[in-house]
Design a binder for these strands. Structure first.
Lengths: 253, 253
DNA sequence: CCAAAAGTGTTGGGTGTACACCCATGC
DNA sequence: GCATGGGTGTACACCCAACACTTTTGG
């Protein structure tokens, strides 16, 4: 097949990588989904789930490309995540492109990175003999942060991607109603508070915390017969609030 | 030249596009640098400066690629900006990748978008018969926002990129010391306030504004003999503050 | 029966906001 | 000399953080 794309310049390979966060309600810890690479490069090393963008090309009988269509990078990231782990994505957002020269030993590979929130569940390995597993996030981060200069825990530049994802998660959780995406539909205020404390690494006063979160106005209180109160995220309220240009006030640090 | 990259999948073309903001101190308005496209597609239309990532390939005598090296996307964006406009970049940050299928009529082109802050000056056209010019940003944004559904003012999906850039600029200016990058090294508090008012579209009280900005601690007061006081950004103070994990407090909306 | 978790209000301090006057410069 | 722009301080209001006790449930 002869390439005939209109540009004669060499093209980079383009992939996505995703940092998948899950919250273990029982253990009250944040987890990260990593896969053990079954193939080179970095065979046996841990890495983020990800893969290459799919482009469908139509060629004429001479092999010239007459049409090509891509999936969006977000779709690519979501598809790779589904394929490799079987998790259902509750939230997904872009971190940015990673393009440092030499980041992939195979050649020029640019990766658009994402982070996603899911409810952790049993994971299945992907197709290319990779095995996915949930690991305690803070332990993984500690390992990453204590690697000697020049060494990496994860394959490629995934250490950097993880650090950026955590930075963004800490930022985003203060202004966007994403903590609830780490919990089942119905949750208690204590569970919400535990997530914030686990993610931000700070303790909060129960009363003040509860008041702040409820004042944001995005939660519905579910009818409760027993003593305990449960809540649910009200997407419409959040959407209308955000459409009115107001920034959500959740927890400030 | 036969492609032999290790991946046999078709690759997208990868480019960067940059939203260049400048502040006209005399007219007290925000400006945007656009170029008039000299070539198809969208010849004659306005667009953002940008271009394709450079990849150097080494091939052996049979034309097989034995080594390839890319510039980073940030370098690409900076280079394209320099080449096409001659402006000196004071600040540049990523907006994210744009990859909607069909965004470029020529084929699959993924663009990593950036926004940059520069001091507006005389601009020269680029090499491919493009002409750069500074336009009042809010007028451009108005045009974009009033385009009929399905029509675009700028080429490609650059309308979307501009909107995202402005959204980010409004966010970032509240938390990062970037407003000063739109001004000469030495500036007055009034100039700073004018930028905030122009960017955020709100008026501020002089005294409160000045106090807030000075309380942030990132400005040095320059020795003044006359009546007027001038300031300068102290990068070290900002860096040490940010390294201590504290978030900068500037102007909140 | 005891321990641990969850529900409930108030108060003090700090931070942000509103506001008026004076002085210097330039037209 | 007058108008404009730039410099300066205070008072009030609101929001946020600190805090103790009671009740229920589960072991």
């Amino acid at each position: 097949m002869k390439p005939n794309y209109g540009y004669k310049y060499p093209r980079p390979a383009v992939a996505t990588d995703s940092v998948i966060f899950g919250y273990d309600v029982k253990e009250k810890i944040l987890k990260i989904l990593l896969i053990e690479r079954g193939i080179e490069p970095f065979q046996g090393k841990m890495s983020l789930p990800g893969g290459f963008i799919k482009i469908k090309t139509e060629t004429d009988e001479d092999g010239f490309v007459i049409n090509e269509e891509n999936e969006s990078l977000l779709d690519c990231a979501r598809r790779e995540l589904e394929e490799e782990t079987g998790c259902k994505v509750r939230y997904m957002t872009e971190l940015g492109a990673f393009s440092t020269p030499g980041r992939d030993p195979r050649g020029v590979v640019i990766s658009d990175a994402y982070y996603a929130l899911v409810i952790p569940g049993p994971v299945r390995g992907g197709d290319d003999a990779m095995e996915a597993q949930w690991l305690p996030f803070h332990e993984v981060l500690d390992v990453i942060n204590h690697m000697p200069k020049g060494f990496h825990f994860l394959a490629f530049d995934h250490d950097d991607i993880v650090k950026k994802a955590y930075y963004r998660l800490k930022e985003d959780i203060c202004f966007e109603p994403i903590a609830f995406r780490l919990l089942p539909e119905k949750f208690s205020m204590t569970q919400v508070q535990n997530i914030y404390q686990e993610v931000l690494g700070k303790e909060f006063d129960r009363r003040n915390f509860s008041r702040k979160v409820l004042d944001s106005g995005v939660l519905d209180m579910l009818p409760h017969t027993g003593r305990n109160i449960y809540y649910r995220l009200n997407e419409e309220k959040y959407e209308s609030m955000r459409n009115s240009g107001k920034r959500l006030k959740l927890i400030f640090v």
